[in-house]
Design a binder for these strands. Structure first.
Lengths: 334, 334
DNA sequence: ATGAAAGCGCTAACAT
DNA sequence: ATGTTAGCGCTTTCAT
């Protein structure tokens, strides 16, 4: 038994004995107070606080089969996009009396399976995933057992899992179309690794769906170092594009800095468009024009979906959230 | 009982029956495989995977008294400082086979007590706090029961709890001293709310410890909006300071933008010094000089401390991590 | 309205 | 090396 310090934690029996009732009665005041006589209830409740009694979640779980927490798997916390999502998710979950436990998995599908496994072992009642690309084993894990699982950060109403998110294809298309309407005909696209990230792939498809543009593709890590590499390559070009569409704000902000450092003015000499709408994006100089991805709303929607699923058995319907063009100062009309 | 889909989850007894051994043997191959004959072990293991058996964490916890997860309470995830800390913490914890569950509490001490309570209810084996200011009830909760609790984000070897962190007083002092050595004699200090944040208070004390400076204090929310207000106030001054020391990078980055927007050059017209060293800080234009707070190392140290405490009973010693001056481009020597 | 008692899935003595 | 069995702290019938 786990004892902390000297006095071991009081349990149901201790309370029952001290209050002069049976354990069943104590359990009742905990779970259905109305079924207990007011006086009895009052006495039990006061004994509970006297003894600082706290029901054991484990013992509860073993009986009720409910742990009241769900797990989320995200690539990283080191990215405001996921952090915002998770904080909105946690808030909504709390409305349903559900706790959230977060695991980070990098971009490693194997690790994801493993962490999903431990989350389920731990007792998670549902899983919330990011993106569409997952190890098949993950689906074995969740699909076969019909384990409540939700995919986020993308929208696809024909996916094997319910999805809640924005359409990455459309988001990128929206950006490039805007660039086109602003008069740009030759642009660069800066994006992260395609191989390991399905959302990036979807965005590139969106870019390609816009006709009548000359487009150079630059792939690098989504990091400031990656941006540096891309900037160097763009700067070295003989026929330089008039704008660069970044598939991530981090890349855009990095480019902003690198261009200015090379005495290229943004947007006079070259335009930069981001994607994500990180908190910082509005506060760079010049302020970044970007595609806003509704991650807060996504977190709230995911929380509600899971809450309804677990508490009322309503299986979630796919939900599509619209990305939005945010015009600030980093793109010029030409 | 919780059953998912049709076939209820296999349990120890099912495995034992199917493998033709006793439940104890199955339990043994799970917990001390070496004590089981190789053949028996092999048979049991194969039955385990056939039946997709997964031990129930709750049942385990109830017996062993161990849940193998710890809780962390942070103000917010919407701040790279905490996100970095947590990801390092989680990594280190994983080395000890410990999982991390994160709760966000804003700047609300009441909420902190409440969330701490639910974490403990849930079965957390230890708690990791941020900062020094907590509701007394929190200490009742943890101190009286000698619940393993660690405080981070500040250092104080005489605190009631073991602390792992940097000295906020020294960090601020370091910054202002640098400004002084660079020739600045009249500076502004931009900081967040003092009332609700003990770390901010400590930093201000550090600022005040430097003599021979004229210092204007500007308090605002730690946000870009807050920075905007502070920038307006500084800009409106007749006798303008030559530098502003920000107690947070968010404030510094906001100021950078606001100053440039008002056609004030940084650092030629006014210097800006940050604190935190957010990932973005190196990639603003001009790049931000700042005080680096070793949050990654702090996360690792905290993870190790908790791991050693829980796994080997070694109570952690306070640990002091040094803040570090990072010279980039936003401060001029005059 | 309350109590007695049977488990839940597992671990840990204790036997063999 | 393996089995038997008594719990762990709680919820939940089923009686009363």
């Amino acid at each position: 038994m786990r004892k902390i310090g000297n006095q071991k934690r009081a349990n149901l029996r201790d309370v029952a004995k001290a209050a002069g009732v049976s354990v069943a009665t104590v359990s009742r005041v905990l779970n259905s107070p109305d079924s207990v006589a007011p006086e009895t209830r009052a006495k039990v409740q006061s004994t509970i606080s006297e003894l600082r009694f706290m029901p054991s979640a484990a013992a509860r779980a073993i009986n009720s089969g409910r742990t009241r927490f769900v797990g989320a798997l995200v690539p990283t916390l080191d990215n405001a996009i996921f952090a915002s999502f998770l904080s909105a998710l946690e808030n909504k979950l709390n409305d349903y009396g559900l706790a959230l436990i977060v695991s980070t998995i990098g971009e490693n599908p194997q690790l994801e399976v493993q962490k999903a496994q431990s989350l389920i072992n731990l007792g998670a009642e549902a899983l919330i995933l990011s993106g569409a690309a997952h190890d098949p084993k993950l689906f074995q894990l969740t699909n076969q057992t019909r384990f409540p699982t939700l995919a986020t950060s993308f929208y696809d109403d024909s996916a094997p899992l319910p999805t809640i998110g924005y359409d990455n294809h459309d988001a990128a298309q929206l950006g490039v179309q805007y660039l086109k309407s602003a008069g740009h005909r030759h642009i660069a696209v800066a994006h992260g690794p395609v191989e390991t990230n399905d959302r990036t792939q979807a965005r590139i498809n969106g870019v390609q769906s816009v006709s009548g543009m000359t487009i150079d593709y630059h792939e690098a890590d989504i990091s400031f170092e990656g941006a540096q590499v891309i900037a160097r390559n763009i700067l070295a070009q003989k026929d330089r594009p008039t704008a660069v569409a970044c598939m991530s704000d981090v890349l855009a902000i990095g480019l902003l800095q690198q261009f200015q450092r090379s005495h290229l003015r943004v947007p006079e000499d070259i335009s930069v468009l981001g994607m994500d709408d990180l908190p910082f994006a509005a506060h760079t100089f010049p302020a970044l024009s970007t595609i806003h991805l509704p991650v807060k709303r996504m977190g709230t929607a995911a929380g509600r979906a899971i809450g309804e699923w677990l508490e009322h058995g309503n299986e979630p319907a796919p939900e599509r959230l619209e990305p939005q063009l945010i015009l600030r100062e980093s793109v010029a009309e030409i």
